[in-house]
């Protein structure tokens, strides 16, 4: 028999319970990355060029090195660093590690949102003699935020799929639960398949939702789209 339902019955509750940890961890990492992303974005707008360069360099470094190794670094090496080093629990290391890693992406998303606001809007705000704070809160942010919401949603899904990496430092998420069960009973097919099933179950509907959101946002911000489509189909000549 290839597929043993008894094993499924045995392991399903374990993985289901671990799912909550995985989900909670996802949200915690996400919150860290959202907030930290804002800080990075502000730092990148600093008036000193050398400072911006350094920040960009650091972000590029974090972004292009594997989160797995960053987790190892936080978990194994950080406690050894003199003066500032502290021992982190696996969960804390996971939250900080993945949160920081993905904050480099969210900061990029914020930046693209701000850059996408038409230059004329800044000039119009200036012409109306708005204060700096007012320009941001009344003009720029209301236009910059809605289009990036779907992008941020995408990163939530991506991050969710990155969580199994934390199994490597001992976080008992779905992945490690399945693996340990597998090692004990020498069956891997059912546990891993169930984990895959859970991931698909959770991330596919969310990605459909994000797609829907994206379409809705596009329509709101580009009313010409309908006309454009009509033109392409040749309805309007």
């Amino acid at each position: 028999m290839i597929w043993d339902w008894n094993i499924v019955k045995d392991v399903f509750p374990l993985i289901f319970r671990a799912m909550w940890l995985t989900l909670g961890l996802t949200l915690a990492c996400y919150a860290v990355s959202l907030v930290l992303g804002i800080i990075w974005t502000l730092l990148r707008r600093a008036p000193w060029a050398w400072f911006r360069w350094t920040v960009n360099g650091v972000l590029e470094f974090i972004r292009s090195t594997p989160p797995l190794v960053q987790l190892y670094f936080l978990f194994y090496a950080w406690p050894l660093v003199p003066h500032v080093g502290v021992t982190l629990s696996p969960i804390a290391a996971a939250i900080i590690g993945l949160g920081v890693h993905y904050s480099t992406y969210t900061s990029e998303v914020y930046r693209s949102g701000i850059d996408a606001v038409d230059k004329g809007q800044w000039e119009a705000a200036l012409a109306l003699n708005f204060s700096r704070a007012r320009t941001w809160t009344k003009v720029i942010l209301p236009q910059a935020i809605p289009p990036i919401i779907p992008m941020l949603g995408n990163y939530l899904i991506i991050m969710f799929k990155e969580i199994p990496t934390t199994a490597s430092i001992g976080v008992m998420g779905m992945m490690l639960t399945a693996k340990m069960y597998g090692a004990q009973h020498w069956v891997y097919l059912e546990p891993f398949t169930i984990v895959a099933f859970f991931f698909l179950l959770l991330s596919y509907p969310s990605s459909l939702f994000v797609q829907w959101l994206e379409k809705k946002m596009n329509r709101r911000f580009d009313k010409n789209e309908v006309l454009h489509e009509a033109k392409q189909k040749g309805v309007v000549v």
């Binding site: 290839i2 199994p164 693996k179 891997y188 895959a196 991330s203």
Partner: peptide, 27 residues
Amino acid sequence: VEFFRGTSLVVQLFWVYYALPMLAKAI
């Protein structure tokens, strides 16, 4: 596409390495 985008790479990696040979053995 949806299957491989919907599940995590780590999960796929473990599935291919541990579960796939078992599946193959059973056929």
